[in-house]
Computed example of a mutant assay.
Amino acid sequence: MGTGNQIEKPLADWAHAHFGAGAQLVSLKRLSGGASQETWAFDVETSGASTPLILRRAPGGAAAARASEAVSLATEAVLLAATGKAAVRVPEVLHVSPPGSELGEAFIMRRVAGETLGRKILRDEEFTLARTRLTRDCGEALARIHAVPLTSSGPLPRSLGADQIAKYETIYQSFNLPRPVLELAFAWLKANAPDPAEPVLVHGDFRLGNLIVNQDGLGAVLDWELAHIGDPREDIAWLCVNSWRFGHTEKRVGGFGDLPELLDAYAAAGGQRFAPSEIDWWEIMGSLKWGVMCMTMYGAYKTGADPSVERAAIGRRVSENEIDLINLFEGLGRHA
């Protein structure tokens, strides 16, 4: 992993080149967020003005082998530029550092003020107004993301519904640990697969935790490393998965909103018109995926590949996803 001493000089050199010889690098600190990449916050001061910035960097500056579905930092930077051009609220990228450079594989973007912690966004009084606007804001953001031309989004993996069933069933079977609810979900998804929608740019992890929210609503969409070409309903449904409602289960959309409002905002911003019932299949897929991911994280803890308490704790949440799946199956047909 990188240290402040490793990156301070190349960051200061960049600041001088970008802001002028008098620019000063201050308040450099490593942030706790970011499971697969380093995230650093820092400010550049020039003539009394301060510019808040974020460095997103490969661990140690050199990218190791990554999961096949995770895009490179360079591709993330391309996606931020392309979606920003499409009026999606994203941080502006100021610099992309290539592999092998003094700073290492990384990019620098403006720091957007706001909160990312789901529980605070759903609970704290300062976000009362934001919660009334967030459903609409998310619908508009998703419509604009899905409208970005694939030719401008960089090299991306392709993953539709059938691809994801095959992938996660293979992972599940590798554990040789039968879980009847998950097996029921795999069977139901195969038997009830909808006709695929026209493939679009999909964010892949659009949910509270990856959204900056300020007092007025959505401030920015973050964490594009799981972006891919896929079905637009995947993004809509992932925001609805109960795990990302942080206890506010009565609100299907992220714990803060209702699905008809989200779909209306999505269509009004140029997205396809979907009925709430068309999201059911993908929400079941999302809960199943997260259940298998939780199994994977516990596997990493058990084998010692990642002995952190966080991995063990997340691994225990498989049972929560099983309950969510049962509730989803019982609710089928209730959504108009």
Score class of each variant (00 low, 15 high):
P178F: 07
E183M: 11
P196H: 08
L182R: 02
S174T: 09
A193P: 04
L189P: 03
A197K: 07
N192E: 10
I165V: 14
F186Q: 05
Y168C: 00
K190F: 03
I171Y: 08
S174N: 12
L184G: 02
A187L: 09
Y168A: 00
I171R: 10
D195E: 15
Q173C: 11
A187P: 06
R179S: 02
L189A: 03
P178R: 12
P180W: 08
L189E: 01
A197Y: 02
S174A: 12
L184K: 14
A191P: 06
D195L: 13
I171A: 06
E169N: 08
Y172S: 01
N176M: 08
L177A: 13
V181T: 15
I165W: 00
L177G: 05
A197E: 15
L182D: 04
P178W: 11
I165G: 00
V181M: 13
V181Y: 02
Y172I: 03
I165A: 01
I165P: 00
A193K: 06
D195G: 13
A185E: 05
D195R: 15
F175I: 05
A166F: 03
P180A: 05
N192T: 15
K167F: 12
E169Y: 01
L177H: 13
Y168D: 01
A185K: 01
A193N: 02
I171W: 12
P178Q: 07
N176P: 00
L177I: 03
E183D: 13
L184S: 12
